[in-house]
Amino acid sequence: MGEQALTTDYYEPDVSNLVTENDTPVDNLFSEKEQRLLTSSLYSSWQGRTFLSSSNVGIFHSTDAPPIVPDVFVSLNVQPPENWWEKRNRSYFVWKFGKPPELVIEIVSNREGEELGEKLNIYAQIRVSYYIVHDPIRQLSDSPLRVFELRGMRYFEISENWLEQVDLGVTLWEGEFEGSRDTWLRWCDRQGNILPTGDERNWQAEQRATEAEHRASEAERRAQLLAEQLRNLGINPDTIS
């Protein structure tokens, strides 16, 4: 009996009739900025890591159900397909990427989004490890930030903001982003330090360069002052080794 050839082919559902984009703008100004802040800072700070983070992109977990569209998601160890204009590559199809995202964020703008109801249940069903609800004006509860971790088949709310499975934390940060001051949801490291955006990294680099230049200038000024004092004492500073 001859050996049976192994194949890596797998069944890929037909997605030609699925609606992957509807071009309907629904976000408010804060949510739009918040989404960009979260995605851009992650790409600026996680250079060298393989991941995909997007906002308002549909997650298809079944061809028989409409997608769920989180404000932000993060999926580790995956990257966009090379030809992302093809219909089968335009959204996050769970069967194509081989897993759901590890983390999703919903930003509450009203009481109709079902962030603590239907959406929470769907994310649990598709096995998203962490579900984060940012409620900046406290529409749903007294807490502006709620973090849920999947344990078994259901979510449990956790008090800590460090997400061990993704090596990432979240925190509320009061500051200015793109000229707007507010309390923003930010990524952070284990020590609570925020992950900076590209602009913040550039500003920090400029600050370090300015401080280094100031220190060098101050050292030069002190050297000149010392040399002048030595000359006043009749000592030639150039002869001192």
Rank of each mutant, 00 (worst) to 15 (best):
V147L: 08
Y131D: 08
Y130M: 03
R138A: 12
I158T: 10
R127C: 13
I158S: 09
I137S: 06
P144G: 09
L120T: 03
Y130D: 04
S141V: 03
P144D: 04
N121E: 13
V128F: 12
M153T: 14
K119W: 01
Y130K: 10
I137G: 00
F156P: 00
R138F: 01
N121G: 04
S141M: 05
R127V: 11
I137W: 04
P136R: 03
L140E: 12
V133P: 03
R138H: 12
I158K: 12
F156K: 13
Q125G: 12
Y131K: 12
E157V: 07
I126W: 00
I137F: 06
D135C: 03
Y155S: 07
S141C: 03
H134F: 15
A124Y: 06
I132W: 05
I126T: 04
K119F: 05
L145I: 06
N121A: 11
R146V: 04
I126N: 02
E149W: 06
Q139P: 00
E149M: 09
R151N: 09
Y131P: 08
S129R: 14
P136C: 08
A124E: 09
E149C: 06
R138I: 02
Y155I: 11
L150W: 08
Y131M: 07
Q125I: 02
H134L: 10
R138G: 01
F148R: 00
I126R: 03
D135V: 01
R146C: 07
F156I: 13
M153A: 15
L150N: 01
R151Q: 12
G152Q: 12
H134K: 10
S143H: 09
P136F: 03
S143P: 00
Y130W: 14
P136K: 11
S129A: 13
F148T: 01
R154K: 13
Y130T: 05
I132E: 03
R146P: 01
L145F: 12
S129V: 08
F148S: 02
R146E: 13
V133A: 01
V133I: 12
N121P: 00
P136Y: 10
I122G: 03
I158A: 07
Y123C: 06
I137L: 10
L140M: 11
I158V: 15
G152Y: 10
S141I: 02
E157L: 02
E157A: 11
V133H: 02
G152M: 13
Y131A: 06
V128D: 12
E157S: 09
R154N: 15
P136H: 14
V147G: 01
Y155P: 03
I137Q: 14
R154W: 14
P136V: 05
F156Q: 14
R127I: 01
Y130R: 05
I132D: 06
D135T: 05
Q125V: 03
L120N: 05
H134S: 04
